[in-house]
């Protein structure tokens, strides 16, 4: 949390993503064209969200094992930053899909109402709402120990809800989003060009490290606050 080498790694990888991501050649596919470069940004937001939510759940379990309030603060801050990355993923996806799935200038494309009913979109919205409820629940209880215990248990359930809503149900239903009934988008070896992986994997690591860095700052502020409260 206090070392700087991984922060520097994150910064370097994100800078690399933003340069190589724009400058390297990408395969030109119909409908996608240059927009496939969004893979380095939009998809990485969801990867970062998933990793941050996982760390949050692990800290919730650590709290329930030790009853150390420190872990409850960890769990909450990782969940908040995960939600921010999720919202960014949703918003960037909205821009991307309005020019690839439902282009108003192209009559052969699907209409917006079909797109809005896409199971992947609804699933991601449910997952984010479940985590919003986590914040509402945690911040509405005044007693510190009770708050930590209830919210840690809810956190584990919220994490369990992530899997059906963003991984399983969109895979079972026909979807416009890549990775409907045929495997994992972007991770499949036949899905993206090898040269794109050179940017894609560093991008995931870079964005995730930036997310973790922001979280540690929030954790440190909250630990300071806690210290001040207990010394009064």
């Amino acid at each position: 949390m206090y070392k700087s080498w991984w922060k520097i790694t994150g910064v370097v990888l994100v800078i690399y993503t933003c340069t190589a991501g724009f400058l390297l050649d990408v395969p030109q596919l119909p409908a996608l064209g240059e927009t496939i470069r969004n893979l380095y940004f939009h998809v990485c937001m969801w990867f970062a969200m998933m990793i941050l939510f996982s760390i949050s759940m692990v800290n919730a379990i650590r709290y329930l094992r030790t009853f150390d309030l420190k872990y409850d603060i960890y769990a909450r801050q990782f969940a908040v930053v995960g939600i921010i990355f999720g919202i960014l993923g949703y918003a960037t996806g909205a821009i991307w899909m309005s020019f690839t799935w439902a282009d108003p200038n192209n009559p052969t494309f699907d209409s917006f109402s079909t797109v809005a009913r896409d199971p992947k979109l609804i699933g991601a919205a449910i997952a984010l709402l479940v985590y919003f409820a986590y914040l509402v629940l945690r911040d509405s209880v005044n007693d510190m120990d009770k708050r930590a215990r209830i919210s840690s248990v809810y956190n584990i359930f919220a994490y369990a809800m992530l899997f059906p809503s963003i991984w399983i149900i969109p895979r079972l239903l026909p979807s416009l989003h890549p990775g409907g009934e045929n495997g994992n988008p972007a991770l499949d070896t036949k899905d993206i060009d090898g040269s794109m992986r050179m940017v894609f994997y560093p991008a995931i690591i870079g964005w995730t490290l930036i997310g973790v860095w922001i979280t540690t700052l929030k954790i440190r502020i909250n630990l300071l606050k806690e210290k001040k409260l207990s010394s009064l």
Partner: peptide, 12 residues
């Protein structure tokens, strides 16, 4: 395209 890269890098 380098202009875009410069703008994005500056924001970052």
């Amino acid at each position: 395209i380098y202009v875009v890269v410069a703008v994005v890098l500056l924001i970052l």
